[in-house]
């Protein structure tokens, strides 16, 4: 009985193994590479972003790469060309010049940029300037208004360069954290999501020791804002900005203390002298009015 039983078990178990059969996978991939012809901008992006920096620019609307929370439209082809050329010259090149090679931007700059024609409009009618996701992607909005404002550096700073430096700083300090002592300078002064109602003017924010109303949100935003304002404005513009109506010397002193932390951090962690970077950017901005934004090779 025992032997019979054991034998039966053995047979059944071996049958179970034998009954398995593996399906052979098809050699054909479900993903088919695009065969669409490349246009001039596609080639420009490939040669000037993808090859040297390992960056891709998605200028044609792809819904899953945009923000589905909002009603957005694609960017114009012409606006995409402008943005691509502007960003290369005024956004990436200064870092190359300061660090001496493209390696810095190649390692740290977000790998994907997306272009959107309009800004994200919230139901209360306010707009979002730009967003970044996890250090991998920056979304740039409002490109369809770019042509009309393409030689205004204050416009370009507000919508694009400020956003790019701000988001880039987030990525840098996610890679190498900034000193925690920075958090204590404004300490409990950070107000979180009510930043836009707490400080309604730049002057009021500066008086409280924040470079902008948004900087009062939290320490990481403060850090990124300090960096972005410092490098995008010339020394005189920066001073004038700090002295906006409503600001106070006490507030400016706090900002200067925090700025020193940012400068030290950039110098020690990444070897970037923010004053040299600013000077390089300003030298390029001086040529903005004659910079060719629309011609592709």
């Amino acid at each position: 009985m025992k032997i019979k039983y054991k034998l039966m078990c053995l047979v059944l178990i071996s049958l179970i193994y034998a009954s398995c059969k593996k399906e052979k996978l098809s050699e054909e991939s479900v993903f088919v590479d695009s065969t669409l012809p490349k246009n001039a901008l596609d080639s420009y992006i490939y040669n000037n972003y993808t090859i040297p920096y390992n960056i891709d620019i998605i200028y044609k609307y792809v819904d899953r790469e945009s923000d589905l929370t909002y009603n957005l439209v694609p960017a114009t082809y012409e606006g995409s060309i402008r943005m691509t050329k502007l960003l290369l010259n005024f956004g990436l090149k200064p870092y190359d010049d300061i660090t001496g090679s493209k390696a810095f931007m190649r390692s740290y700059f977000p790998k994907i940029l997306t272009y959107i024609g309009t800004s994200s409009v919230k139901s209360n009618g306010t707009i979002v300037l730009g967003t970044a996701e996890g250090g991998k992607k920056i979304n740039l909005y409002n490109l369809n208004n770019l042509a009309a404002n393409a030689t205004s550096i204050s416009y370009l700073n507000k919508y694009y360069f400020h956003v790019i430096h701000h988001e880039f700083q987030h990525i840098l300090n996610q890679t190498k954290p900034f000193p925690t002592s920075f958090n204590t300078i404004s300490g409990v002064g950070y107000v979180g999501d009510v930043w836009n109602t707490t400080y309604t003017t730049d002057g009021a924010a500066i008086a409280a020791g924040f470079i902008s109303p948004y900087a009062s949100k939290e320490a990481t935003e403060d850090f990124a804002e300090l960096y972005s304002f410092y490098v995008t404005l010339s020394a005189s513009e920066y001073t004038a900005y700090l002295n906006s109506t409503g600001s106070t010397p006490a507030g400016i002193a706090i900002i200067n203390t925090k700025t020193e932390v940012v400068k030290t951090y950039m110098k020690n962690e990444f070897g970037i002298d923010m004053d040299a970077l600013r000077a390089n950017i300003q030298a390029k901005v001086a040529g903005l009015s004659t910079f060719d934004q629309t011609t592709l090779p």
Partner: peptide
């Protein structure tokens, strides 16, 4: 997938 005012006009938020 690139902006064309003829069709994307209808997709613009009322803000625009």
């Amino acid at each position: 997938d690139t902006y064309n005012p003829v069709i994307h006009y209808f997709s613009l938020p009322g803000y625009y």
